[in-house]
């Protein structure tokens, strides 16, 4: 009788179960009605099965989002785990949709599911990619904008993983500030 390696039949479990959400901008519906849960997964193999099956971000229509959040956290400011939180924001110019968008979003998801931020990964709620004509955005959401050490660690690791040059900076903004901003920019609470 042949002995089959457990590698062949045991999937690799992730630290967390994750939910992938899709948002499609239909102005005849409410914001919440436009948000749909695609699927949940908690193994490396099931992540790829889902990723290989769906459209790349760069193929989505303008106004669409993907959100990857820990199971039990909804991809909105109002969720208990988000309402005191904020995000590391990556803004992309129009050329970057072709050059960087899909690579950055995959790297972002790999950081999340692989728990790349060490103990600070506990502060991570999820990540969002927004496809927009004026410029796409990718953000990592964390749970509490006052957790400076965790946020800074996440920001440094994330910037390095995306290959963003040291001389360029990325900013962290609280959702409260984003929700109440008057102009087009939100002030940064932290920068790395």
């Amino acid at each position: 009788q042949e002995i089959v390696s457990p590698e062949c039949y045991i999937k690799h479990p992730l630290q967390n179960r994750w939910s992938l959400w899709f948002f499609k901008n239909d102005k005849s519906k409410t914001w919440q009605a436009n948000l749909r849960l695609i699927s949940k997964f908690d193994t490396v193999e099931d992540f790829w099965a889902l990723y290989n099956h769906i459209q790349l971000s760069s193929n989505l229509m303008s106004g669409c989002d993907y959100s990857l959040f820990k199971d039990g956290i909804e991809p909105m400011w109002e969720d208990e785990r988000n309402k005191k939180g904020g995000r590391w924001l990556i803004t992309l110019n129009k050329q970057q949709r072709k050059l960087d968008l899909d690579r950055f979003w995959l790297e972002t998801m790999l950081c999340l599911i692989g728990e790349a931020f060490d103990d600070s990964s506990d502060d991570v709620c999820g990540a969002v990619v927004n496809i927009r004509t004026k410029g796409d955005k990718i953000a990592v959401w964390t749970t509490d904008y006052e957790n400076k050490d965790a946020i800074t660690h996440i920001g440094r690791v994330y910037k390095e993983r995306l290959g963003i040059p040291l001389k360029m900076t990325i900013g962290y903004q609280s959702h409260a500030d984003t929700a109440t901003k008057s102009g087009s920019t939100t002030k940064n609470k932290f920068v790395v």
């Binding site: 690799h12 479990p13 630290q15 490396v44 290989n52 790297e107 692989g114």
Partner: peptide, 20 residues
Amino acid sequence: GKRQYNRDFLLGFQFMPACV
């Protein structure tokens, strides 16, 4: 401890054929 997976490990599974 936490189940941490680095990027190369994760990427190694993208086109892994299913075992039979």
